[in-house]
Amino acid sequence: MSSLTSENIDILVSQHQPENATLKNYVIGFVSSIVLTMSAYLLAYYHAGGRGLLFGLLAVLALIQFSVQLIFFLHVGKEFSPRLKLIVTLFMMLVVLIIVGGSLWIMYNLNHRVMPSTKQMVQYMNREDNL
């Protein structure tokens, strides 16, 4: 058993610190972000693969990079219990998912049903003329 010295107090206090910023974490985060950004960029720049596939791939790359930065830059999920920061973050993601996903669902449904494009309108009008 060692006695409490000022160094030990520092350690004790730092154990109450939810974040553990280390050079290793930042380097891992930085390098993988660069790699992910570059691959997304090259995929889009050279239009590699089919459009649907490409959209999916880019979205996945963005989500991976999001998680990487969340973990290595923003230190999410590295706190002690109760993991309030994590809970709040997950709740935010749920809300954003609902708002963005819900809005898109609703608005595309509405557009599809009540906001015909100019092209469609011309088609309808031509059809009326032919009647």
């Binding site: 669902w105 609703i106 449904n109 509405l110 599809h112 049903r113 009540v114």
Partner: peptide, 8 residues
């Protein structure tokens, strides 16, 4: 009543 489909 804004015009969404029955699924929405």
């Amino acid at each position: 009543t804004m015009g969404a489909g029955s699924d929405v």
